[in-house]
Amino acid sequence: MQPTQPKYTAEQWTASLPALRGMSTKTLDIARAVLVEGKEPIEVANEIGQSRQLVHAAIKRVTAVLERQTVGLVPVMVWLTPEEAEQVKQMAAKHEQPKEAQPGTTKKTPNRQKKA
């Protein structure tokens, strides 16, 4: 199987690791195989003995973080007083994804059927 075109270079991936530090090694390894090495998700799923859905979920979680960097946002981890932390949270809120766009929060709507 022909590998797909990688979305990120190894250098971009390495530079993004601080933003990904809260994710598991397994998630990062899966995403790296697809996004940097250009492997197909089904190939990665077969290699690690997991479902294709698990691979896609890992890619989606990592991509959500990486896409924030493409719009000029940077992760910050600092120690602050509770009051200062609240101020920073308020500043960061405008950059958060809307609830319906966050991974794992799909909204089910009823089927709309036409009346005969």
Rank of each mutant, 00 (worst) to 15 (best):
residue 2 Q to N: 13
residue 2 Q to P: 15
residue 2 Q to V: 12
residue 6 P to I: 07
residue 6 P to Q: 10
residue 7 K to Y: 09
residue 7 K to A: 08
residue 7 K to R: 15
residue 10 A to C: 02
residue 12 Q to K: 09
residue 12 Q to S: 07
residue 13 W to R: 06
residue 17 L to V: 00
residue 19 A to S: 13
residue 22 G to M: 02
residue 22 G to D: 03
residue 26 K to V: 12
residue 26 K to C: 07
residue 27 T to N: 10
residue 28 L to R: 15
residue 29 D to V: 02
residue 30 I to T: 13
residue 30 I to G: 03
residue 32 R to Y: 14
residue 32 R to T: 06
residue 33 A to Y: 01
residue 35 L to K: 02
residue 36 V to M: 06
residue 38 G to H: 05
residue 41 P to R: 01
residue 43 E to T: 12
residue 44 V to R: 00
residue 45 A to Y: 00
residue 46 N to T: 10
residue 47 E to A: 12
residue 48 I to A: 03
residue 48 I to L: 07
residue 49 G to W: 01
residue 51 S to G: 12
residue 51 S to A: 08
residue 53 Q to D: 04
residue 56 H to D: 15
residue 56 H to R: 14
residue 57 A to T: 13
residue 58 A to T: 01
residue 58 A to S: 15
residue 58 A to V: 01
residue 58 A to W: 02
residue 59 I to R: 02
residue 60 K to H: 11
residue 61 R to W: 01
residue 63 T to A: 04
residue 64 A to H: 02
residue 64 A to C: 06
residue 64 A to S: 15
residue 65 V to K: 09
residue 66 L to S: 05
residue 66 L to T: 00
residue 67 E to V: 04
residue 67 E to G: 07
residue 67 E to R: 03
residue 67 E to N: 03
residue 68 R to F: 04
residue 68 R to V: 08
residue 68 R to M: 13
residue 69 Q to A: 12
residue 70 T to R: 10
residue 70 T to H: 04
residue 70 T to C: 01
residue 70 T to Y: 01
residue 72 G to C: 05
residue 72 G to E: 08
residue 72 G to D: 03
residue 73 L to T: 06
residue 73 L to D: 06
residue 75 P to Q: 06
residue 76 V to K: 06
residue 76 V to A: 12
residue 77 M to T: 03
residue 77 M to W: 02
residue 78 V to A: 08
residue 78 V to C: 03
residue 78 V to N: 03
residue 79 W to C: 08
residue 79 W to Y: 10
residue 81 T to S: 15
residue 82 P to M: 09
residue 83 E to K: 07
residue 83 E to R: 10
residue 85 A to R: 06
residue 86 E to F: 12
residue 87 Q to G: 14
residue 87 Q to K: 13
residue 87 Q to Y: 13
residue 88 V to T: 08
residue 88 V to A: 14
residue 89 K to W: 13
residue 90 Q to P: 02
residue 92 A to M: 03
residue 93 A to C: 05
residue 93 A to K: 15
residue 93 A to W: 06
residue 95 H to F: 15
residue 95 H to K: 03
residue 96 E to F: 02
residue 98 P to L: 14
residue 99 K to Q: 14
residue 100 E to D: 09
residue 100 E to K: 05
residue 102 Q to R: 15
residue 102 Q to H: 12
residue 103 P to I: 13
residue 103 P to L: 13
residue 103 P to G: 07
residue 104 G to Y: 05
residue 104 G to C: 04
residue 105 T to L: 13
residue 105 T to A: 07
residue 105 T to D: 06
residue 106 T to P: 00
residue 107 K to E: 11
residue 108 K to I: 13
residue 109 T to V: 10
residue 109 T to Y: 14
residue 110 P to T: 11
residue 110 P to H: 09
residue 113 Q to D: 02
residue 114 K to V: 14
residue 114 K to G: 10
residue 115 K to S: 11
residue 116 A to S: 04
